[in-house]
Computed example of a mutant assay.
Amino acid sequence: MAVQISPSILSADFSRLADEATRVEGIADWLHVDVMDNHFVPNLTLGLPIVESLLKATSLPIDCHLMIESPDRWAPSYAEAGAGSVTIHAEAAKAPVRTLRAIRSAGARSGFALNPATPIDYYEDLLPEIDMLLVMTVEPGFGGQKFLDVVLPKLARARALIEKHGGEVWLQVDGGVSAETIERCAEAGADVFVAGSAVYGAHDAAQAVRDLRALAAGAQQS
């Protein structure tokens, strides 16, 4: 499992997002964009126009995480705009199979996210429709939260189910990922790591990405 790091601009300076993307360009694998609507989660961030602008400003593929109501309606638009990956939440999607297929048809990788309390086993049959499974290790809505160790067994269970089905599904973890927690996530089976404060709160964001990658890769090999 190759380690991939996806810095979250939720922790970046919103007044200079293009410059913030440049700080990790050529080092990170993705740029993670949290779209929040103040309905599905109690926070309001940014939407499709900002994603479209970022796509013009960076060579990094955009990893869109939709924490919104009605993702079935909006998700395909992010894929059509050029996002490389679009993730919808199990708790919000009404027609997940149709929406995941629409994301793929529009040219993006299909992502499926689970909140900390949402069991993975309920969605095992959806794995063939998913390119990336996202396990949240905080309650979605705000950056800078404390990592929830209680979710690690579910992360390991998700990896076991992916291996059981033999699919090429990436396993992403998001929430409180830092130098102190990333090794535990890698050991549990994650291979794509969203990091906000750990990257954009560092003096040298690019070096922070390198350090996180090294820690995760080392944990995978141990």
Rank of each mutant, 00 (worst) to 15 (best):
A2Y: 13
Q4I: 08
S6A: 15
P7N: 03
L10Q: 07
A12S: 10
A12Q: 02
L17H: 07
D19Y: 05
V24G: 06
I27M: 13
D29P: 11
L31C: 09
V33M: 05
D34M: 03
V35W: 02
M36T: 08
D37R: 00
V41D: 00
T45K: 05
L46E: 00
L48M: 08
P49L: 04
P49N: 02
I50L: 15
V51N: 01
L55V: 04
K56M: 14
K56S: 14
S59C: 11
P61E: 11
I62D: 08
D63S: 01
C64W: 06
C64K: 06
H65M: 04
M67V: 07
I68E: 07
D72G: 13
R73I: 14
W74I: 12
S77Y: 15
Y78L: 01
A81I: 01
A81P: 01
G82W: 14
G84L: 04
G84F: 07
T87Q: 02
A90Y: 03
E91W: 03
V97L: 13
L100M: 13
R101T: 12
R104E: 13
S110Q: 11
L114Q: 02
L114W: 05
P116A: 12
A117P: 05
T118H: 09
I120R: 00
D121R: 13
L126V: 12
L127P: 00
L127Y: 01
D131M: 14
L134K: 01
L134C: 12
L134T: 12
T137I: 07
G141S: 03
G143K: 11
G143D: 12
G144F: 14
K146G: 10
D149P: 09
V150A: 15
L152M: 09
L152T: 04
L155D: 00
R159Q: 10
A160Y: 05
I162F: 04
H165K: 09
G166N: 03
G166F: 10
W170R: 15
L171G: 06
Q172S: 11
Q172N: 13
G175D: 09
V177S: 02
S178T: 15
A188V: 00
G189N: 07
G189Q: 08
F193P: 05
V194C: 00
G196Q: 07
A198Q: 08
A198N: 08
V199T: 02
Y200N: 06
A205Y: 08
A206E: 02
A206M: 01
V209S: 11
R210P: 09
R210H: 14
A214Q: 15
G218S: 12
G218E: 14
Q221M: 14
S222W: 08
